[in-house]
Design a protein around this nucleic acid. Structure first.
Lengths: 202, 202
DNA sequence: GTCTATATGGCGATAGAC
DNA sequence: GTCTATCGCCATATAGAC
């Protein structure tokens, strides 16, 4: 599903993204990426020289996409409750449209932590601003004193897990594709309530 | 790190578990498994014929381990709050000692859903009893009307995510190994409070 | 059952024509 | 820049001696 107007390099990156997200570094085949991009295998090496170069570019793009999304959604000057609603809605929406990204990142991190952490360090990702905003929001007097890092992880966990564990959960819960999609939609509304209850003073 | 009293087959399975958990199916090398088991590569094939057979056994064992743990911890006849405390404490403890299992399962599910779902179906895992117990617990009158499947996923997410995303989170939060371990310990106590707040009537 | 040696195939990477 | 053909390696798998 690659548009003809893309340059060869863009076609390759699109195809590599698809295949790497689906199969990981070890599972992906250069031939498969070439087929997906509708070009010859030798061209991959002409443009990117090695499989590892190609992978690094795709991984960095995945990191950039997911962090960009997190920043744009968390970094607004509105009250905690509203921010949380927007954040979860937009973030889960993003994860639905890019469902392979979090699983891809977590899988590679699991299988080659050293290499991946190196890429992390080279990426322009500084989550400190994100934390600062979250910390400010949590100062709200009607809220429990909350460790904002704990809260950050909880929000991430509750958003990401149902997406990356989907095949397993869908099987366990005996949901059809459609039922699981509806389940996620319902979740977008219920998750902010769940979290606000958890941190609101009684 | 394999004891000498184990049979060859057991030594192979132990070694395969270690390597597959760390590298996944595609990343693991039969030679590496043989080295880990301190035996010859040909013996792997003598006992298991193919890499896929060996992998299937390891994957099934991982599924069995994690579900067995879930059942033993959730399936007790105590009030919701106490059950939740025990469940989270024991489950996170299990995940700490077996930190490769959830990442392994999720990574393989992501990279080859079809094959893995097949293994799932053949595995003796019926989560219905687990759901039943959870459903009963949630009937408690002091609790919000809660979708027990939603609650089930939330608990899983909050326990598993900090373990599988550890390298990433540790890097983002700028924690040392020791600090992250302490963070998880603190979490064992705070997570039940967080969840009970979320579902308790106001 | 366990080993050494080898077959077989697949994949990343390159050479070289156009 | 793009292609066809091919190299060289490495991983799974097997043959066959002990």
């Amino acid at each position: 599903m690659v548009k003809k107007t893309l340059s060869t390099e863009e076609k390759i990156l699109e195809a590599a993204k698809t295949i790497f997200h689906r199969k990981g570094f070890e599972g992906a085949r250069m031939q498969e990426i070439a087929d997906e991009a509708r070009i010859n295998k030798a061209l991959l090496h002409y443009y990117f020289r090695t499989k590892e170069n190609l992978f690094d570019d795709v991984f960095k793009a995945a990191l950039r996409d997911i962090f960009t999304k997190l920043f744009t959604t968390v970094d607004a000057n509105v009250p905690m409750e509203e921010k949380l609603k927007n954040l979860i809605n937009e973030y889960i929406g993003f994860l639905q449209k890019n469902s392979y990204i979090p699983g891809f990142i977590l899988a590679e991190i699991n299988q080659n932590p050293g290499k991946i952490i190196e890429i992390f360090k080279s990426a322009p990702v500084s989550p400190s601003m994100l934390f600062e905003r979250l910390r400010e929001s949590v100062q709200d007097e009607s809220l429990e004193k909350t460790d904002f890092r704990e809260l950050f992880i909880n929000i991430l966990a509750l958003c990401i897990f149902p997406i990356i564990a989907r095949p397993m959960l869908q099987h366990i819960l005996e949901f059809s594709d459609k039922e699981y999609d509806l389940f996620i939609e319902k979740r977008k509304k219920e998750l902010p309530v769940f979290i606000m209850n958890a941190i609101r003073k009684k």
